[in-house]
Design a protein around this nucleic acid. Structure first.
Lengths: 214, 214
DNA sequence: GGTGTTTGGATAGTGGCACTTACCAAGGAG
DNA sequence: CTCCTTGGTAAGTGCCACTATCCAAACACC
């Protein structure tokens, strides 16, 4: 398959594919001669993953490169590769540890993990991007005057735990070891927008049930 | 309160506040004379909401302006204002209706709403941004070769419905009618990153439980 | 074997966005 | 009267995801 065909089958413009090649999001094709390179189904698959990450997951190009670097790192075991890849995903502004709202949010988040008995997550609080994200969101709520204490957080955390269990079950049903790392990344990137969409749809449904359309 | 104090109390630079004023994200202060304007607690509150939307919710400035326009539209009833405000929030690229994956995703999404009995949401499929977002995510999954059928979607949708019910319950406990619209927006903007963070934390916890840290 | 098209790669440019800097005239403080 | 502060405006910055333009080396066809 040539670049033009790759473009046609993926719906991504040739110029953009060249850009991705340049940026290292897509491995180079098999060079046939000075002016021709050959691409295969694996390239198409990777290109679709890249597009999904960028367009649906809204992940910056630099981050995509980093994540895929972990996916392709054969020197690591599967679990670590998945972890490293997912770890690289988010990057919110660091919470300002001097801010009183941030400190309160930290206490709230720690209390939540205790109440849930998430011993493993508890060990990751200093480094997990997800933990920091939670703290940032909680601090923002507090600044606006809403107290999101354990009573509100616990049931939601339990719901998300059920979702996470379902996600990992899904990954375990999946075929090749090879594909599992990629599947994990695809899940992380696409499941979240999907859950968000379901959440909004559910809100729309429930709002209409309670108050009607008027 | 002068602009400088508003800046200090919110932690937002004076230049940025001026920018927000120019962009209409913040109502102008009470003009004292040609070179002095007076701001109050309401301005501070609004500024914090704007920051939360932009920094935590990652909502573009233009969208924030549109959303706040609905929040402040006194000519509408509360439910409609909330709806209009939330409606304005997302803007993913439109799904390409000619794409076979998109059409398949439409069928899957419709089947899901039927299975859930979400009659109200069903009526909104042609216009709801959340529905389109779901379709885009499903289509991306299909393109990558993962079949997210009703069996996988249903339990997740039910989880998100529970979350949505909890959200609306929370809003109902809230004080003034005035604040409810703002609270609804704050919830939509901040609850979603929070749920996402909880989801990732839950995944980290469960991954560690199943496979350990190694 | 010449001619026109297609190929992939490099370089530079584009448009959008969220600020930020530089500047300004008007007020107030000492 | 001088000097600093104020809020407002216009232009600039840095980043990012592309995108347009060239280019020379290969085919493709006559």
């Amino acid at each position: 398959m040539r670049l033009a065909q790759l473009s046609e089958r993926s719906g991504v413009s040739a110029a953009t594919i060249k850009y991705y090649l340049r940026e290292g999001l897509l491995p180079p094709g098999r060079q046939v001669n000075a002016t021709t390179a050959e691409y295969d189904e694996e390239h198409l698959r990777r290109l679709r993953l890249v597009r999904a990450m960028i367009q649906v997951g809204r992940i910056p190009v630099a981050t995509v490169r980093e994540v895929l670097g972990h996916v392709d790192d054969d020197s690591l075991g599967r679990t670590i590769r998945v972890g490293a890849a997912l770890w690289a995903l988010p990057q919110l502004p660091e919470p300002d540890e001097d801010d009183e709202y941030v400190r309160a949010a930290h206490r709230e988040a720690d209390a939540l993990l205790d109440a849930l008995g998430w011993e493993n997550a508890k060990q990751l609080t200093t480094i997990s991007p997800a933990y920091r994200r939670l703290v940032v969101a909680l601090a923002a709520f507090r600044r606006l005057g809403y107290d999101w204490d354990a009573e509100l957080l616990l049931p939601r955390a339990k719901l998300m735990y059920q979702a996470a269990v379902a996600d990992l079950d899904f990954l375990e049903t999946h075929p090749s070891e090879e594909e599992k790392v990629e599947a994990a990344v695809a899940s992380a990137v696409l499941v979240e927008p999907m859950l968000q969409a379901l959440h909004r749809l559910a809100q729309e449904e429930e709002t209409a049930r309670r108050y009607g359309f008027g």
